[in-house]
């Protein structure tokens, strides 16, 4: 039954199913396949991502959800031998296309990683680093953006007195919020979060979760998570991946209360994965 989802008629079923809500779509993914060398990691996935919503990708390790996520801002380009087939449509452009300027793309589709990875620079410079490269040089302008993005990331109050201290002096949770802040500073439209709180303690985790819910007003968020509770708490839509296939994609509430596919139910109730 897994293979059945690769066929076109059934993928259309997803679209029909969601049509009641008719929300605006920010990304349309059609028959996306991703290969590492000869090995196929993602098997022809079709799904749409809603604007200003949190979409959670769940599934056991190695199911292809992170690979899928990384293909949306072409981070997979960095992996030798990785290639993608199919389409990811963003603003009427296929972003997998050869003539996409990945640098400009990544400004609009930002990414936050599993492990907090601030630059070994000051907190301030962490945020201004990419801004300066994008051409914003005026100190007054930078100051405003730094404060704004730290505010949005709910970090401003904790760091405003030590903006010029090393970012590495922050706690893990603060570092991760700084990473989110520096992505926000670029004013992206889509934010990709790859298990952003899995390396954090419960309190930091809760802060990051609140932040994500808060951010969806302005951004469309796709989050990969291993944590079922997290997915159910913060996401609007949930996609369940298994061995490179999309098993089920629906409103989060539906997935967690009444999934249509048995595999989903088994995974969510913790029977494997």
């Amino acid at each position: 039954m897994v293979t059945a989802f690769k066929d076109e008629p059934i993928t259309n079923h997803f679209l029909d199913h969601n049509s009641q809500q008719q929300n605006e779509q920010i990304l349309q993914i059609n028959h996306l396949e991703i290969f590492y060398g000869e090995k196929r990691a993602v098997n022809g996935i079709t799904l749409d991502i809603e604007k200003n919503a949190v979409t959670a990708l769940i599934g056991p390790s190695g199911c292809g959800k992170s690979t899928f996520l990384r293909s949306i801002n072409r981070m997979n380009d960095l992996i030798p031998g990785a290639r993608a087939k199919g389409e990811i449509i963003y603003e009427d452009l296929n972003i997998l296309s050869e003539d996409i300027n990945v640098v400009a793309l990544r400004k609009e589709i930002g990414m936050v990683f599993q492990k907090p990875n601030p630059f070994p620079k000051s907190i301030y410079e962490n945020i201004t680093h990419a801004l300066k490269f994008a051409g914003i040089k005026k100190k007054s302008e930078l100051d405003v953006i730094v404060e704004e993005s730290l505010q949005k990331a709910a970090l401003w109050d904790e760091v405003k007195d030590r903006l010029h201290k090393s970012a590495l002096s922050l706690s893990g949770g603060q570092q991760q919020r700084l990473c989110i802040a520096r992505t926000i500073a670029m004013k992206p439209t889509v934010m990709l979060l790859d298990e952003p709180s899995s390396a954090l303690d419960p309190i930091s985790n809760a802060k990051v979760e609140d932040l994500i819910v808060d951010l969806k007003k302005d951004y469309s968020i796709i989050i990969v998570t291993h944590n079922m509770q997290q997915a159910s708490r913060i996401s609007d839509k949930t996609a369940f991946f298994l061995s490179g296939d999309l098993i089920e994609y629906d409103a989060t509430e539906k997935i967690f209360t009444n999934p249509s596919v048995k595999k989903t139910e088994e995974y969510i109730s913790g029977r494997f994965g």
Binding site: I95, D99, N101, L105
Partner: peptide, 18 residues
């Protein structure tokens, strides 16, 4: 940032400045 510019001009490689 420059969202008013159409996507084609923002995202295609034709913009060679970078």
């Amino acid at each position: 940032m420059e969202k008013l510019i159409p996507a084609k001009e923002r995202l295609l490689k034709s913009n060679k400045k970078w």
